[in-house]
């Protein structure tokens, strides 16, 4: 309980600050959605130690399933997102269970192959996905409870919905990472052989990590499609997986707030830079390299470092005053 009490205000503050500080609502919406997506990647990489190029599968799947449910099933947007989440969990369990049968570079290559497969399947099934053109005109069907209608038909309302989702998903993931499951994942990441010898069925832990990661990524993918009213094919491209990875790594994968920083950095800096310098991805490549060499913990560790430095300075200054 104390965990929620501590983190809930921080998360609400982040959601409010994004709304108030960022130049546009759509930018703030995008930051929160991609923060969830980066968090999904961070669960795999930072906790289970799995470098996966498969996140675009869940992202694209969530977008397609949520969109198709709005178009063909006519269910409300909440149900649509829940179906997308369930689909994400199912496919993540499958992809995860297959991919973790191999380790190291072979694991990475498998996730890469699965993403390419997902891309070409989406491309081929153009009757459902719209192929190259993407799935256009995705509606947001309103929720109708006993004649009381909840619609997310304005960008403010949509932002409010995304913000609530953001807070709840982050609280859930904070709880999971602070659980014994989270601790066991860290143990497996540090020493898989020992964990196995101690009795842990390592593969099921990894599959469960995949399921959590895949579900929240698919949910966020669904929100992104509803946000754009559009589910483009580029959602399932390998390059999307790369961007998600880079976002998570630059933000820092050992801490849930790293995901927020990573998303903030990529979405906001990308938005600002691309206005006058279209090739800002060049910079991103360089930053990725520098992060790996000099700041493995990402921006979040840098931020903590600054805090520590300041508190030490402030702390020592105050003790000097006392003496």
């Amino acid at each position: 309980m104390s965990l929620e009490l501590k983190h809930c205000p921080i998360l609400i503050a982040i959601a409010l600050a994004a709304f108030l500080v960022l130049p546009s609502i759509s930018l703030a919406t995008e930051v929160l959605i991609f923060a969830i997506i980066a968090l999904g990647c961070s669960i795999l990489l930072g906790y289970a130690g799995l470098l996966s190029f498969g996140q675009a599968i869940f992202f694209g799947l969530g977008a397609y399933v949520a969109s198709l449910s709005q178009i063909h099933l006519g269910v409300n947007f909440l149900v649509g997102l829940l179906i997308a989440t369930a689909a994400g969990a199912t496919v993540a369990a499958l992809v995860g269970a297959l991919a973790i049968r191999r380790q190291g570079i072979y694991f990475v290559m498998l996730t890469l192959a699965f993403t390419q497969l997902a891309f070409f399947v989406s491309y081929t099934l153009d009757e459902w996905t719209g192929g190259d053109n993407g799935l256009l005109d995705v509606p947001r069907n309103s929720v109708d409870i006993f004649g009381f209608e909840i619609a997310i038909d304005s960008s403010e309302k949509f932002y409010a919905f995304v913000a609530i989702s953001f807070v709840l998903i982050f609280l859930g993931m904070i709880r999971i990472t602070h659980s014994q499951f989270g601790r066991t994942l860290l143990a497996i990441k540090q020493n898989e052989e020992r964990a196995t010898a101690l009795g842990y069925s390592v593969k099921w832990y990894k599959v469960l990590a995949f399921i959590f990661s895949g579900s929240i990524t698919a949910y966020a993918g669904g929100m992104y499609a509803l946000f754009l009213n559009f589910a483009p094919l580029s959602n399932v491209e390998l390059i999307m997986s790369e961007h998600i990875l880079i976002m998570a790594i630059i933000g820092g994968t050992g801490n849930v707030y790293g995901a927020v920083l990573g998303s903030l950095f990529l979405v906001v800096v990308g938005d600002m830079l691309s206005a006058f310098w279209e090739r800002w991805l060049f910079l991103l490549g360089g930053i990725l390299i520098l992060t790996v060499f000099y700041m493995r913990g990402g921006l979040i560790s840098g931020l903590y470092g600054v805090f520590e430095f300041l508190s030490q300075k402030f702390g020592s200054a105050s003790t000097q005053k006392e003496s």
């Binding site: 470098l51 990475v108 490549g285 390299i289």
Partner: peptide, 17 residues
């Protein structure tokens, strides 16, 4: 391995851009 992959991924991205 995973850091080698990320470093070379960064190099690839820079060359492409």
């Amino acid at each position: 391995h995973k850091y080698q992959i990320l470093v070379t991924l960064g190099v690839a991205l820079m060359l492409q851009e």
